[in-house]
Amino acid sequence: MRTNLSHRKERIDRGIKVRSDDIFVLASMRDLLYVILPKAIVILAMLILPLLKDVVGMYWLNVLVTTLVVILLALSWDLLASAGLVSLGQAFFFGVGSYIAGYLSFKFGWSPLFTIPTATLVGSIICALFLYPVLRLRGIYFGLITFALPLLLARLIEATKVLGGTEGMSALPPIPGMTGKLYLLMFVVLLTLFGFRRLISSNYGLVFQGIRDNDRAVIAAGYNIQWYKTQAVFIAALPATFAGAFVAHHFQFVGVPAFAMDYSILPLTAVVVGGAGTFIGGALGAVILMPLSEILREFGSLRVVIYSLLLLLFSIGLPEGLFKYVKRKYSQIERLTTMEEVKHD
């Protein structure tokens, strides 16, 4: 037996983190800032950005819309994943929302004021009904069916020429006013973000997490997990169908592209880059990726290559995602400690 000294890294909470966590009276302005600054920056940025129409220009405001839409899809993805359902086709939810809103407005001339809430609610019910049969399975089956469904619906619409066929439905009424539109979207994003975070840590949300960790134990506690998973799908579909309906009126057009794989890949990449399981991770990922993607637009499909490589890189190299990484750096410091290692020969 011999002992030798070696070094290893140790992580400890920063003093300021400990102070602001455990003591409920904040001792100084600095502590207060430490706690609220990250949240305040985000909310302030969201409040100010829509007002900057003249500074950043219409083009970038549109990018902002797309970013927020991807955030909604990413939040939806993350809630599904919290219940152990790994979606490979967020485009399905998006497309269903889009088409319902588009059809109601194209066929019956409803105003966006009515089409968007209807599409959100009815769309989510339809999504839950469509997916109900596979919810009794575990493993990759949910992923496979969500991957195939949007592609199938797109081909079906093209082949049967219903709902506008390949031409789609155009000249839909817009949501008036860019600023108001952006505030509406941001309100929904924040509502979903905080709502989902609250939901998943509530006793009701614990059941979802339980299904993800060990579905048998949840059944053994007397829960009908197929029914709970259906509820998870319904709740997760809400922001996604809303996003679809919103975009239908934003572009004043609904067509087969609503089921395009972009709407599946983009949120997935955002969540993987930002980190799954936190909800904020997906939002962070989208905020980084979407503007980047716009900058790369002129490179054509190289953009998609870079995208997929990022997805690959993060999925293998930093599976926890950026958010958890940044959060750790913000609240903990690393230092080297010596430790005595005992070796048995």
């Binding site: 614990l206 997490q209 339980g210 960790d213 060990n214 134990a217």
Partner: peptide, 8 residues
């Protein structure tokens, strides 16, 4: 095989 809910 007692598998708990790991992350809770």
């Amino acid at each position: 095989m007692s598998r708990p809910f790991y992350n809770m």
